[in-house]
Simulated assay, not measured.
Amino acid sequence: MKEYEVYSDLRVPVNSKIIIRLDGRSFHSFAQKMGLAKPYDECFYNVMVEVCKDLFEEFSPIFIYTFSDEISILLENIPFNGRIEKINSVVASFTSSSFALNYDREFPKPVAFDSRIIPVNDCDIYDYFKWRQDEAWRNCVNGYGIHFLKSKYSSSEANEKINGLNLSDIHELLFQNGINLNDVETWKKRGIGIYRKNKEVVGFNKKESKEQVSYRSYIHVDYNLSIFSKEFFNKLF
């Protein structure tokens, strides 16, 4: 019956890097049922960071980027011999279970993440993450915009008023009402990055009887990402 397994041997291109993008399933209704704070619930984002750290420990990626209920994982060492069916199923289930373990609350129903694989060349990596960071900014502007309008109008009226407004219109509306998005925390505007950095460790070399400096890598959570540039990603490789 092995031959009945659809796409079981479909693999990513040899010697390629991949991005795995995960999205929370029906997290809009999840947020409503959980009563998450608007426009940003810091407890939720703390959990997402812990999930990303778990993913980093498990799959050793180059870089992880998260905003909203989305996680993008840049991998060079591809697990499971590149089998797409295996990667998608294991990473999605690992993410869902990590989220449930790190979230210290009861859920209205089981949570799930979906997973998709994007093979990339080195020259595509900046374009991909810049695209997602631009989406994080749109999320931020729209999130603050609809939150403000709902404080003044009913949900249906607020949705009607925000429809058709572009980002600069919403930005100006907020500014005219005392909300300056330039003052909002960077992670809300640009997302959160997780990657390895080196730290200096000073030890004592008994053989040479002197202090010795070495460097150890650690998982760094970057809440103050710059606007992505090609140089940023070149430094990660």
Rank of each mutant, 00 (worst) to 15 (best):
G143Y: 03
I179E: 02
F233D: 01
E172D: 11
E106C: 01
R190G: 01
E57V: 10
E231L: 11
H220G: 01
I64K: 00
Q176Y: 10
M34F: 08
T186R: 13
V120C: 02
E42F: 05
N166I: 07
A37K: 15
F175E: 09
K86H: 06
R138T: 13
L75N: 01
I20H: 12
L55F: 02
K189A: 11
R132V: 03
Y126M: 04
V111P: 00
K86R: 14
N88A: 12
N234P: 00
F44N: 00
F232T: 10
L236M: 12
C52D: 03
I179M: 02
Y153M: 14
E3P: 02
I87V: 05
R11S: 14
N88Y: 04
N102L: 04
C43E: 14
I19D: 07
Q32I: 14
F113Q: 07
P119W: 09
R25Q: 09
N121Q: 11
I194S: 01
N205G: 05
I118F: 14
G35K: 10
V14W: 03
Y144D: 05
K199T: 13
I192L: 08
F148H: 13
N234D: 14
F228N: 01
F27K: 01
G82D: 03
Y45T: 11
D169S: 11
S8A: 11
N177T: 06
N102Y: 12
L22A: 00
A112M: 11
E42D: 13
D183I: 02
I73W: 00
I179G: 05
E85V: 14
F30V: 03
V6Y: 15
I170E: 04
V14C: 09
I62F: 01
K207W: 06
C52G: 08
H28M: 07
L225E: 03
N102C: 06
N205S: 09
Y40L: 01
L174V: 04
G35W: 06
N81E: 14
K189I: 00
K53I: 03
V141T: 03
F59N: 01
E70D: 07
I227D: 13
C140M: 10
S16Y: 12
D134T: 09
F80W: 10
F204I: 07
S26P: 11
F107V: 00
S16G: 02
A92R: 01
E106K: 07
K38P: 06
I78S: 05
N234E: 14
Y215P: 12
M1H: 10
